[in-house]
Simulated assay, not measured.
Amino acid sequence: MLALIAGQGDLPRAVAKAAPEPVLVCALAHALPDRVEPDLVFRLERLGGFLRALRRRGVTRICMCGRVTRPALSLRALDLPTLRLLPRVVRALRRGDDGALRIVIGILEGAGFQVLGAHEAAPDLLPPAGILTAAQPGPEAAALALLGDRVSAAQGRADLGQAAVLRGGRVAAQEDDAGTDAMLARLAPGQGGLLYKAPKPGQDRRADLPVIGPATVAGSARAGLDGLVIEAGGVMVLDRDRVLRDLDAAGMYLWVRERGA
């Protein structure tokens, strides 16, 4: 049986809908999902007991998906099974995003669960490589995409965001903890350029794989961008049919591209 540890945003609902089997939707009490109804809610201080409860329900696989903010940890609220995990939980809370996720995945695997990425639980969310829209990238797009590769590598080394806006041969905006849509909303409208989005090089793709959806298209259109470039096999597309319709209506392109191509 598959359990989703669901955060906020559209991804948990998309994974639950696209998964080939029924899923048990779980959520941290401090970060309840806003698109799906959880079957089971737990606190970080009860993580050990929560994992035992999953085993009793027959869960063998876990997928983490959606935005989750870091909770405060109350030592007085710890249960005994979580007390044994405390050193690793504290290390995770002190690390950057990638380091924290690696520790959490290690805890889940150490408890006997197989950890799946959202793209593994719902593989149809990954689009095929190529240009999927009627509009085609212009001559500037290839050079900007190569710039995006370099920016992505630098953001990965600094454990920063997964997206950037590139215009006129330079970086116009970079994603921070607020996310891609917030970055686009802050961007002054202009003309031309592209949104580049890809996983951080070397990140564990079983958690925090990038996503685009209709809101990303709307924000990119408001910013006056020509299109979107996403890494093939590394960025999920939510509501793909609508995304492509909206891009075609706006005369924008979607280029699903191998890094370095």
Score class of each variant (00 low, 15 high):
Ala121Gly: 01
Arg13Val: 03
Arg257Ile: 11
Arg222Lys: 06
Leu101Asn: 13
Gln162Ala: 15
Leu54Pro: 00
Leu244Met: 12
Ala249Trp: 04
Arg186Glu: 12
Ala100Tyr: 00
Pro22Glu: 01
Phe50His: 00
Ala153Glu: 08
Arg242Trp: 03
His30Phe: 05
Leu32Gly: 09
Met252Cys: 10
Asp226Phe: 08
Leu28Met: 14
Gly58Leu: 01
Arg206Ser: 05
Val36Asp: 04
Ala134Met: 13
Gly112Arg: 02
Glu231Phe: 06
Gly193Thr: 14
Gly138Gln: 07
Ala118Asp: 00
Ala249His: 08
Leu32Ile: 13
Arg205Ile: 09
Val235Phe: 04
Thr82Phe: 00
Arg240Val: 05
Leu126Pro: 00
Ala135Gln: 00
Arg67Gly: 05
Ala153Cys: 12
Gly251Ile: 15
Arg242Phe: 04
Met1Ala: 15
Ala185Cys: 08
Leu80Arg: 03
Leu132Asn: 05
Gln8Asn: 11
Asp97Val: 13
Arg257Asn: 08
Ile5Gln: 06
Ala172Leu: 14
Leu116Arg: 01
Ala14Glu: 08
Arg205Ala: 08
Ala3Lys: 13
Gly168Asn: 14
Tyr196Val: 11
Arg70Gln: 05
Leu86Trp: 04
Asp177Gln: 10
Gly219Ala: 07
Gly99Pro: 02
Leu254Ser: 11
Ala153Asn: 02
Gly234Leu: 14
Ala221Ser: 12
Ala14Ser: 08
Pro199Tyr: 09
Ile105Met: 01
Gly202His: 07
Arg245Cys: 14
Gly168Tyr: 15
Tyr196Trp: 10
Gln8Glu: 08
Met236Asp: 11
Ala122Met: 05
Ala172Thr: 15
Ala72Arg: 11
Arg76Asn: 06
Ala232Tyr: 10
Gly234Tyr: 11
Gly66Pro: 02
Leu108Ala: 05
Asp39Met: 01
Gly233Ala: 12
Thr180Asn: 09
Pro201Ile: 15
Asp124Ile: 06
Pro127Ser: 03
Leu146Val: 15
